[in-house]
Nucleic acid binder design. Structure first.
Lengths: 194, 194
DNA sequence: GTCTATAGGCCGATAGAC
DNA sequence: GTCTATCGGCCTATAGAC
């Protein structure tokens, strides 16, 4: 249930974002959204054409937010390594998983180009951004020169997304943190005296 | 639809495995299972107590299969690195995702300890097994000694699980392969003449 | 904008005949 | 073992009053 200071359509979008995160597209019904938003049937269909339309609005906003949060960390201060570290160590509600990556397991989202587009776009942009930072690290000699920046970026992003999977499987965040420590250890600049 | 040489309960389990992989627990209905298995309503409820019971049988089998396949590769011939490489490069239907990891995004599976158990167990065992192999690599000096075997194992597993997410987001297997190349590059024994 | 009424169909399951 | 019948309830809308 959302605060009355939000407009009905806002409350509908926010409720949908929440339910999409927790239950996915297939598991989220208009009725459940309406109840969570404190809105009636007719109200929802007045503001949105239907379930896919409402889901699209919710997915777009979630993707935008995630992109902005990642960008903020990756374009911050510090060396390439420290920014990657900041991205990996940023606070996360690990057991809830990634609200964007989660959609990737949804057959109806993946099958619909319109619903999939925002998911594809954020993850693609994030990958590109990580590639740039990794390239900086390679250019400055901070990272081992025999590596490919694109591949490093994909591995970093996959570690995060896969970390969620492992954590949710066991019901504890430990595997996520372990995976993050692992990738950070592998990326860490080798100290000559190591 | 499955071959008539299989018993009805076999066909029901196999059909459920397929649907669980594609649509998850929430998105899989008994009716859809029955149609795919070529079995009637009464037939399904004769062999299984209900949807959760049938799903459990299917999940257990899928987990078992995955565990056996991974074990086969990891206990094969070769150095620690080459076995990890074999695990990472093993043939996969990348765009379908991991039939076990997928269940991790299902609220009803995660919420039910009985349904979650097989998922937790295989991924845990796989992590343990990868830890052993990684430790071998550390002991032999094949892998950089400043790393922790458990963390490396978690990172490897997360890379695979996350690779599926990235691939499904874009609709192509490329990001998965890129992530695998990345982790392999990071793990690769440094040649002194590098 | 929001409400209630109504719709046809699927959901997960049970009952009982064969 | 398998079949058909039946159940109450939810799913995703649509219609039309207010």
């Amino acid at each position: 249930m959302y605060s009355a200071v939000m407009s009905t359509s806002e409350r509908l979008i926010e409720a949908t974002r929440e339910l999409l995160w927790e239950r996915g597209y297939v598991g989220t019904s208009p009725k459940a959204v309406q109840q969570a938003a404190g809105a009636g049937q007719g109200s929802m269909y007045h503001h949105f054409a239907g379930k896919p339309d409402l889901a699209l609005a919710a997915i777009r906003r979630t993707a935008e937010e995630m992109g902005a949060a990642a960008e903020a960390v990756l374009s911050g201060e510090g060396t390439a390594y420290s920014r990657i570290e900041a991205y990996l160590l940023r606070e996360r509600d690990v057991l809830r998983g990634c609200p964007v990556g989660r959609l990737t397991m949804d057959p109806e989202v993946v099958a619909d180009p319109v619903l999939r587009a925002p998911v594809d776009e954020v993850l693609g942009r994030l990958r590109d951004r990580l590639t740039e930072v990794a390239q900086e690290g390679l250019d400055s000699g901070e990272l081992s020169a025999s590596l490919d920046a694109e591949d490093i970026a994909a591995t970093i992003l996959a570690t995060v997304q896969g970390g969620y999977v492992l954590a949710r499987a066991t019901g504890a965040r430990e595997p996520f943190d372990s995976a993050v420590r692992g990738i950070l250890g592998l990326l860490a600049p080798r100290t000559p005296a190591g």
